[in-house]
Simulated scan of single mutants.
Amino acid sequence: MAETPGGTDSPGDLINRFEGVLRELIRAVLGQDWHEGAGIDLEKLREKQEYERGRRRGVVISEDLLAFTEHLQLAKIIDKHWVRFAKILGDKKRWTVYSDRISAIRNAPMHGRQLLYFEQQLLAGMTGEIGNIVAQYRSSQGPDAAWYPVIESVTDSFGNDVTKDRRPPTRLSVGDTVRFTCVGRDPQDRALTWTLELKRKANRKVDEAIGSQVELTWVVDNQDVSERTEANITMTSGGNFHRNGFYDSTMFIAYAVSPPTGLS
């Protein structure tokens, strides 16, 4: 079977990643004032947020309105503040071509239509290039980022953002399955190894995967019962040197795990 351009990522995955990279860049450059001067209708974003909250019961919905923006809105923000983005994204004409191309390509997979092979190649290439540009920008903000990878995001299957929600309201039960979607980027383009360990009386390794975007799975067991069970996710590059000696970055999230019914 032929491999999809961009590895195993679907066109929808690539579009989501492209938009995620733009949101990350906008946050880094504009901070909390990202919506000012760009004519973004915050009330519509709040309506979208509430719609998601009602439709996706049992899932933690982001409180960050930027998370509910789409490509046209993200492009509008960048265009309105181009002076601040020019040194990062470079040539304005090239950015405009990329942005317009993404807008045209985006409609097909988002409405269930299949992209042609050359369109998939274009999408994968543009997503990778913009992602690398943003990674290089972050590298310029701190000397260590030029050598070591960074965790871009870790989200659990309930929608909790591990980078923000270190103690989410989600209570687990024995037998539950928790999946963590992990995204990282390495300025040296090395393989990234992700490890999921549970911290209780002794560390217990439960899953491992390799890639820039992976999924780690934890099936909650009796030995995980506690009012504070930490799921620790560690990322390590394939290089000889690491930011923290033996690994590059780590994040944790602590859950309360209830005992099985009828047991104490």
Rank of each mutant, 00 (worst) to 15 (best):
D165W: 09
V183W: 09
T195L: 06
T195Y: 01
N160H: 13
V174L: 06
T181I: 05
V178L: 06
A202N: 07
N203H: 03
R200M: 02
A202L: 03
R167V: 15
K199A: 05
T170M: 08
F180S: 04
A191R: 13
D189G: 00
P187E: 05
T170S: 09
R171P: 01
R179L: 05
V183Q: 07
N160D: 15
T193Y: 05
V206Y: 03
L196Y: 02
V178A: 06
L196S: 02
D189C: 00
R200A: 04
F180W: 04
L198Q: 02
G175N: 10
P169A: 14
A191E: 14
N203K: 09
F180E: 02
R179C: 02
R185K: 11
A191S: 12
R166A: 14
L192K: 07
N160R: 14
P169Y: 09
R185Y: 01
P168K: 12
R190S: 04
K199S: 05
V206P: 00
D165H: 15
P169H: 11
N160S: 15
E197G: 01
Q188P: 00
R179W: 00
A191T: 12
P187S: 04
K164Y: 12
D186Q: 05
N160F: 10
V162Y: 13
G159E: 12
R200P: 00
F180N: 03
V183Y: 07
R179A: 06
G159V: 13
G184M: 10
